[in-house]
Amino acid sequence: MMNFSQSADIDDVYVYDYNQSEWNTTWESPCSHQSNQSVEQVVGPYVRSLICVLGLVGNGLVIVTYAFYKRTKSMTDVFLLNVAAADLLFVAALPLIAYNEAWAWPMGAAACKLLRGSYSVNLYSGMLLLACVSADRYVAIVQARRSFRLRSLARSRLVCAAVWASALLLSTPTFYSYNRYRRSDTETVVMLDDAKPENQTDDYVCEFLFQDPRLARTTKVAVPALQLTVGFFLPLLVMVFCYSAIALTLLKARNFQRHRAVRVVVVVVAVFVGCHLPYNLTLFYETLTMFQLKACATSDTLQVAKTLTQALAHLHCCLNPLLYAFVGAKFRSHFRRIVWDLCHLGRKSWGSRRSSRVTSRVTSEAFLSSRRSVDSTSSQGSSFTM
């Protein structure tokens, strides 16, 4: 039975004439997508590497701050910690995915499913958690009288557990459908001559793989449809509603800091829309025209647009720490404490050649002193102060 794969382009057409007694062996060569290959040569190794480094550093600092310098004392803290964890795991998977798309998949089928499935889980969880952050701020500002009862640590942990469970459930088709196979396996057909596509390769890839054509069509539409609805439009609607209500509430207050907070709200929504809307519109168009034959130029242009807009969407993972964590005065003070401690320990270790035991003791003393300083100045509340 012929395999059906997402990597097989719609322009790879095997033409058969079923009205004749013999098969017509006309071979339509696949589109080369030269423009997209040129773009991928820049986006793949350079842009994605930059996104990976910035995402690891920014989200790693958020996690380190919460782990060693600031305890999670509010619902917002719990949400921001989970957002940073999801973004950190998301960007960590980018180098392997880029390598697979550019060359081949060097590991086994289990690793293929784990990589693509975890990528999907972190995508859904990160977007849904951003919606939870906006809902939490809505309750804290617009529904201030009810915020004390609704915004508890136990409730926030329960919401986060529900988000991760939902992301895992939504990613089930991805875990099931992705597999490791040879590119040539999806191009095996009965031919009356020895014609073969020039670019056929035996390299292993990690892509969608199906044995049933009906299941292939359903899954290849359902996966992007879920990503569009649950992974973008639902969080977007929640954010627009919540932040609009927050902005209207803050504009009624005669306070300079409140008006500054309105600008922060506008920036948060604008960055979210600017990063994710182009890619999701491209994905929506690609899903609508997935099973339609396209000219090579049209297909190449679509792939270029998808490559560029996807890189822009991935960039949002690097901006989340700046938009949600470091915008708060308290969080910035904790970050400055981290930098000061690292510099202080660096000078001490560079200036003197001590044993590893002494170095460990100095590190522990600096950590304890920073925790005492932070705990004495911190107060109950959100890490995002508007």
Rank of each mutant, 00 (worst) to 15 (best):
K306Y: 09
A216R: 03
S118L: 13
F367A: 14
I63H: 00
S49Y: 00
A92H: 02
F233S: 08
G346C: 06
S360T: 11
M239F: 02
V304L: 07
T282E: 10
K113Y: 05
G44M: 04
E101R: 05
D185G: 01
R353Y: 10
S382T: 15
F68W: 11
V91Q: 00
D17K: 07
A92L: 13
D203H: 06
Q303I: 03
M2E: 11
R332H: 01
V221R: 07
P30H: 08
C132H: 05
A98S: 14
L56M: 13
L54P: 01
Q34F: 05
M386E: 11
S369Q: 13
V15L: 14
G328M: 02
Q34G: 02
S379M: 10
V230D: 00
A216W: 11
Y69T: 04
V327R: 10
S147I: 05
M1I: 12
E198S: 14
A98P: 00
V358M: 08
A135Y: 07
R371W: 06
D375K: 08
A165F: 09
Y66I: 12
N280R: 09
C317A: 15
L56S: 06
Y138A: 04
E365S: 15
L158Y: 09
A165L: 15
V159G: 00
P321C: 06
T359I: 11
